[in-house]
Design a binder for these strands. Structure first.
Length: 841
RNA sequence: GCCCGGGUGGCGGAAUGGCAGACGCGGCGGAUUCAAAAUCCGCUGUCCGAAAGGACGUGUGGGUUCGACUCCCACCCCGGGCACCA
């Protein structure tokens, strides 16, 4: 191999072969699939990208993994659905539009073209006919259709909701746009405002979303995150009667309803707390306390939720429990009656109690809850322990198990027993009922933004909020709008869009100007992919049944909660509404979360300006080298530092493969024909082993070890070609051809080119996947390790069929073992023929 | 604080309870060359040793086992998620 053989056709030149094959795949429509394709269907999907211009390295990683699987599964004989679309609505384009007073569609379309071109240049293949864009009127139309269906089914509703409001930008901000209580753009302090907003009732599916996680082949990490997010808890909801001046329960007023998961601690309830937003605050506050309470409520309303819940600047509590921020709150002047002790306890207002969880009011038990303990200390309230902490406990609230104390008829019971007894008592006496609560909140849909899917609603003075009739869809935002930096949607100024007629009474009405959260768009694009040309329906049931659920979904773990939960909810809702097959309960059967690409240890992002443009590497090293470097650098599930993606070694390797394979085997000097000998059999075995290993590695996305296997095998072939007797022609030919087939999903261009050189008129990606011959996986001789007391002392080559007895005899008779035993008999001999013998002295 | 991951050569990493460090990067040496690049071949965990060989070695400390990177217990460190959800 130390000279270029005269017959080598040409040098490896990715710059010339890559565009040619990309064109060929597009022309042949090799990765197009029709809905009546008769191969077994597979749906391999990478997450819906936001088109931010040319691909960044993170995109390349994601779409390379997807592409390898698409190509592998195609070669393995499946009819693979591979499509891509663009999550093309959103703030980014709108902000750019405001800056230059240009329509966001102009930016968006350009960026989609750029991203499409980037993906083509790295060799990723899709059924180009199935592309979907969120801002396409056809997509908007079905999005609005779903909204109307959800509304009919009471899965969509409008309600007052507190939002993050930036006074400088005069707009609502998403939680992610609020950084420590301030607007990330203007720096203004974010306020909480209550606005009328649309919601999707995802909470109606809380239990199903929780239960069916079990059926999914997803990373545990993601399932756990969703479980926590849904946050199911079991407890009791019961009433605390309002106390009169003498401290006895009033019967003329409804009790204050509280929720607890620790009914066993009821005897330790020394005060009660309601949320500042609780609707009964007005009623329950005394005149004397009213000014203080009003001031407190006003102050709280100005805080963002994030600020209110954050504990920034707090230190961890010495006893290891959660120490939260200073407990802010005020006395209402009123008291309620603790039904366990029948005594009056003070009722407070505090912002650590949230209105949208449970009943918005709690029984406070400082002895067993650190938050209540902190509040009690700050406001000098009584603390009573009702669970005895273990000896030596020097903390504050004790939340562990132990015998009940100070609790009359519960004394001595364990926490679980006491919970049961207290629950029974509350239920039997009619005070309360068992209750399951979820932390999951309904999905706030409304965005005060222009660049999104309009919500198809009109407001009529007489009829109220009226859904737009199906026949009027799609409602599309007008193009002749002015983008002004007011922070308000330009739709608010567009009179002809705004003013319309009421579909019911025909009177004057105004259109809803809010648009939908873009997570709506990414909640069903994978369904549209299966039937994107359908003009009458969002998708047909037949097409969905053929391809769904997605066999392999690939994306970043940053979507573990929002996108993946919304998409699951959407799928269930569509199925229940008869819009998708009713048995489709989950969209993504199997999920793989790939790691992020970091630069200098920090997450790469446009705002940080530390992105790397992969296009330059395609120019200098070729797409195949880039793909291979990404595959090889790290396990796919782990984060990778960009510096660890090394292209030079990969490019060198591809050159080695080129020099080996571009020379037809018959031309290699000293190639033998005739019967294969022992060294040839070893190559044959290695070839079949590589098939088995690569197949298994692709299936579990162990790309880094698959690449290592290619390199190791290639190194072996180099030695083989240069061996004294020279290579056996047919054996070498099979080895190289097999290597090319196995590498074809990973490095599609070079393998396609080499295959065409070696087999004129054939296309490697149209071949079927090689199968390992079981009989040829076994080597005839293996190296047997001989251990003495578990340490390797000697190695011998033995026949792979060696019996246990022979292996034992071979080991014991070896000089090394004899020397180490020094004449004494071994106490034990472990034989694992043919791999290992362990002699225990 | 709670819940997940993870700690292996100079670096990225590999290894169903059975040869620790595959493969790649980097380094060293050799071949080729007028020379260099490219390429090819070899070596490359640490320590002792001329070598043969030996000792040590997968975050720390224990344990199980003929045998532990792998399983168990305790702890340390790093990364991520959640964090007033009653």
């Amino acid at each position: 191999m130390d000279h270029q053989p005269a017959h080598a056709r040409r040098r490896y030149d990715p710059g010339s072969i890559e565009p040619r094959w990309q064109q060929r795949w597009a022309d042949d429509g090799l990765y197009r699939i029709d809905n009546d394709d008769n191969r077994e269907a597979r749906y391999v999907l990478s997450m819906y990208p936001y088109p931010s211009g040319p691909a960044h390295i993170g995109h390349v990683r994601n779409y390379t993994y997807g592409d390898v699987l698409v190509r592998y599964n195609t070669m393995a004989g499946y009819g693979v659905l591979s499509s891509i679309g663009f999550d093309s609505f959103g703030l980014n384009a709108e902000n750019a539009a405001i800056k230059s007073n240009t329509h966001p569609r102009i930016f968006t379309d350009k960026r989609i073209d750029q991203l499409t071109e980037s993906l083509r240049r790295i060799g990723a293949v899709y059924d180009d006919r199935r592309t979907v864009k969120s801002h396409d009127v056809n997509y908007i139309r079905w999005n609005q259709h779903f909204f109307l269906k959800f509304l009919e089914a009471d899965l969509a509703y409008k309600a007052e909701a507190p939002v993050n409001w930036c006074p400088g930008c005069r707009t609502v901000l998403a939680n992610e746009q609020v950084v420590s209580g301030r607007c990330e753009r203007s720096g203004d302090e974010v306020e909480r405002r209550t606005m009328s907003q649309w919601f999707y009732r995802i909470t109606g599916y809380a239990q199903e979303l929780l239960d069916e996680l079990e059926t999914l082949d997803w990373p545990d990490r993601v399932k756990i995150m969703q479980r926590n997010w849904i946050g199911r808890s079991e407890g009791v909801q019961f009433g605390l009667p309002i106390a009169d001046a003498k401290g006895t329960a009033r019967t003329d007023v409804d009790p204050l309803v509280v929720y607890t998961t620790r009914p066993d601690t009821g005897f330790g309830m020394t005060f009660a707390v309601m949320s500042p937003e609780h609707p009964r605050v007005e009623e329950l506050v005394t005149d004397e306390q009213r000014p203080v309470v009003e001031a407190f409520r006003a102050e709280v309303s100005k805080r963002s939720e994030i600020e209110r819940l954050s504990n920034t600047g707090n230190t961890d509590h010495p006893n290891g429990q959660h120490k939260s921020m200073t407990k802010r709150g005020v006395f209402t002047g009123s008291a309620v009656v603790n039904p366990f002790t029948n005594t009056a306890i003070p009722l407070y207002l505090a912002d650590y109690v949230l209105m949208d969880y449970g009943t918005g009011a709690i029984m406070a038990v400082p002895g067993q809850d650190q938050r209540d303990w902190d509040f009690a200390e700050a406001h000098e309230l009584d603390i009573v322990r009702t669970v005895r902490p273990p000896d030596g406990f020097d903390g504050q609230a004790y939340t562990g198990d132990g015998p009940a104390v100070n609790s009359e008829w519960l004394d001595g019971l364990t926490v679980d027993e006491a919970k049961q007894a207290a629950t029974d008592w509350l239920v039997d006496t009619g005070l309360g009922e068992q209750r399951v609560n979820y932390r999951l909140r309904d999905w706030l849909l409304s965005r005060q933004r222009f660049w999104g899917c309009p919500i198809p609603i009109v407001y009529c003075d007489t009829c109220g909020a009226v859904p737009v009739p199906e026949s009027d869809l799609p409602i599309v935002a007008p193009d002749d709008v002015e983008f002004r930096p007011t922070g308000e949607s330009p739709l608010n100024y567009h009179e002809s869009f705004l003013n319309t007629g009421c579909p019911i009474c025909d009177g004057p009405a105004r259109r809803e100007t809010d648009t939908m959260d873009t997570f709506v768009d990414s909640s069903w694009h994978f369904l549209r992919f299966v039937d994107p040309w359908n003009p009458d329906q969002p998708f047909s049931s037949d097409a969905v049944e053929k391809f769904l659920p997605v066999n392999q979904y690939i994306g970043g773990v940053e979507h573990a909660i929002l996108h993946l939960l919304y998409a699951r909810f959407f799928t269930k809702a569509l199925a229940d509404l008869g819009l998708a097959p009713s048995n489709l309960r989950e969209p993504f059967a199997k999920l793989f979360t790939q790691g992020m690409v970091r630069l200098g240890g920090s997450k790469m992002s446009k705002t940080k300006g530390n992105t790397v443009a992969p296009e330059s590497f395609v120019d200098t090293h070729g797409a195949d080298a880039l793909r291979l470097a990404i595959l090889q650098a790290k396990p796919a599930s782990e984060d990778v530092d960009f510096e660890d993606i090394q292209l030079e070694g990969c490019e060198r390797f591809l050159n080695r493969v080129w020099r080996l394979a571009a020379t037809p085997t018959r031309d290699i000097d000293n190639t033998r024909s005739g019967q294969p000998a022992e060294p040839d059999n070893r190559i044959e075995t290695a070839t079949h082993r590589l098939i088995a290993a690569t197949t298994e590695q692709y299936q579990r996305l162990a790309f880094n070890t698959a690449v290592a296997g290619f390199m190791e095998f290639t190194n072996g072939l180099y030695k083989y070609v240069q061996s004294a007797d020279g290579p056996h022609g047919p054996t070498l030919r099979l080895a190289i051809d097999t290597l090319l087939q196995l590498m074809a999903p990973a490095v599609p261009h070079i393998t396609a080119e080499l295959w065409a050189i070696r087999h004129e008129g054939q296309h490697v990606h149209e071949l079927s996947w090689p199968e390992a011959d079981q009989a040829k996986l076994r080597e005839s001789t293996v190296t047997m390790v001989i251990q003495v007391n578990g340490k390797v002392r000697h190695r011998v080559d033995v026949n792979a069929d060696i019996t246990d007895a022979d292996a034992r005899a071979t080991a014991l008779s070896s000089e090394r073992v004899q020397a180490l035993l020094g004449g004494s008999e071994p106490s034990n001999v472990i034989v694992r023929a043919p791999r290992l013998v362990n002699v225990v002295a």
